[in-house]
C-alpha cells in the first residue's frame, strides 16, 4: 500500500511580532515549523504504516527553499521524500500546486491514499486537499480526526453536528486531517541522525518535468497586504452584576442601531 503525504511549513509564531500600528510583521527569528495540521496527517499516515508493509512518500505543499520539513517527516518514519524545484512556482497558490502535485502523484503510481492537513483561510488557503481530489478525480473526505484502512476503504472519523460521524470511501481517496487531532510521535533518534546526515536522502523533481506545457495557472492574485483598522477602546461597565448586564444590553442596542 502506498500513502502519499503532503506537508508544508509555516513561520514559527514565537519568532515574529505583529505590530498593527506599524502595519507590519517583524520577523525576529526566521524559523519554520511543520504546518500543525500536516503534523496530524503525518501521524495518521504513520499509524496506517505501523505493522503493515505500507510505504509513506512525502511531498511538499510548495516549491520549498529547503527540505527540512521533508526530512522531519522522514525522521519520524516516512520512507521516501521528494522535494520540488522550479523558481517559477515559488509563489504558486493551492490551486496551481494542486495541478503540480497531481502530476507528482501520477509519477508515483500506484497510490492508494493521499493525506494532508486540513487548512482554513486563517491557517492557509484551505484548498489544497480539495483541489487535488478534483485534479485526480478521487473521492475526498475533508476534516478528519482519525483515519484507518478497512479492506480497500479508508474510514475517517469526522466531527459532525453535535458528535462524530464515520465516513467511509473506497481507495484511492484524498483525506485531510484537522490540526490537534493526533499527536505526532517523536522520531527514533538513530533514524533522525541518519536522515539528517544523508545529504541525498531527499529526492528532487523539477516541476517543469512534471507538468511541462500543461503548467496549471494560479487562481489567486496577491494584490497587497492590509491590516485591519485599529479598534477603539470599549467602555467598562460598573456596578453589581445586574447593573453591568443592563449597561451591556444598552450598549449593544445602541451599536446595533
Amino acid at each position: 500500500m502506498r500513502v502519499v503525504l503532503i506537508v508544508g511549513r509555516v513561520l514559527d509564531p514565537q519568532g515574529f511580532v505583529v505590530k498593527a500600528k506599524a502595519g507590519r510583521i517583524f520577523v525576529n527569528q526566521e524559523t519554520y515549523l511543520m504546518q500543525p495540521a500536516d503534523r496530524c496527517a503525518l501521524e495518521a499516515a504513520l499509524r496506517i504504516k505501523d505493522g503493515t508493509e505500507a510505504e509513506v512518500v512525502v511531498l511538499p505543499r510548495r516549491v520549498l527553499e529547503d527540505d527540512d520539513v521533508l526530512r522531519r517527516a522522514l525522521a519520524v518514519g516516512g520512507d521516501r521524500a521528494v522535494a520540488l524545484t522550479g523558481e517559477q512556482f515559488a509563489e504558486a497558490d493551492d490551486g496551481a500546486m494542486a495541478g503540480v502535485l497531481a502530476a507528482a502523484v501520477g509519477r508515483l503510481e500506484p497510490v492508494d491514499l493521499l493525506l494532508t492537513g486540513a487548512t482554513t483561510l486563517d491557517t492557509g488557503q484551505g484548498q489544497l486537499g480539495v483541489r487535488l481530489a478534483e485534479a485526480l478525480g478521487w473521492p475526498q473526505i475533508v476534516g478528519g480526526w482519525d483515519v484507518g484502512i478497512v479492506d480497500q476503504n479508508v474510514e475517517v472519523v469526522c466531527r459532525g453536528e453535535g458528535g462524530y460521524v464515520t465516513c467511509r470511501v473506497g481507495l484511492p481517496a484524498v483525506v485531510t486531517v484537522v490540526p490537534g487531532a493526533l499527536k505526532l510521535r517523536y522520531a527514533d533518534g538513530m533514524r533522525l541522525i541518519n536522515v539528517y546526515r544523508d545529504e541525498g536522502v531527499v529526492e528532487r523533481w523539477d516541476v517543469d518535468d512534471l507538468v511541462g506545457e500543461d503548467a496549471p495557472a494560479a487562481l489567486l492574485e496577491n494584490r497587497g497586504r492590509e491590516f485591519p483598522p485599529e479598534r477603539e477602546r470599549g467602555d467598562r461597565a460598573a456596578g453589581n452584576v445586574t447593573e453591568m448586564a443592563q449597561a451591556a444590553a444598552d450598549a449593544l442596542r445602541q451599536w446595533v442601531r
Partner: peptide, 10 residues
C-alpha cells in the same frame, strides 16, 4: 551540523 540542529529541536 544539520543532524544536531534537528536533534536539538526534537
Amino acid at each position: 551540523a544539520p543532524e544536531h540542529v534537528a536533534l536539538r529541536r526534537m
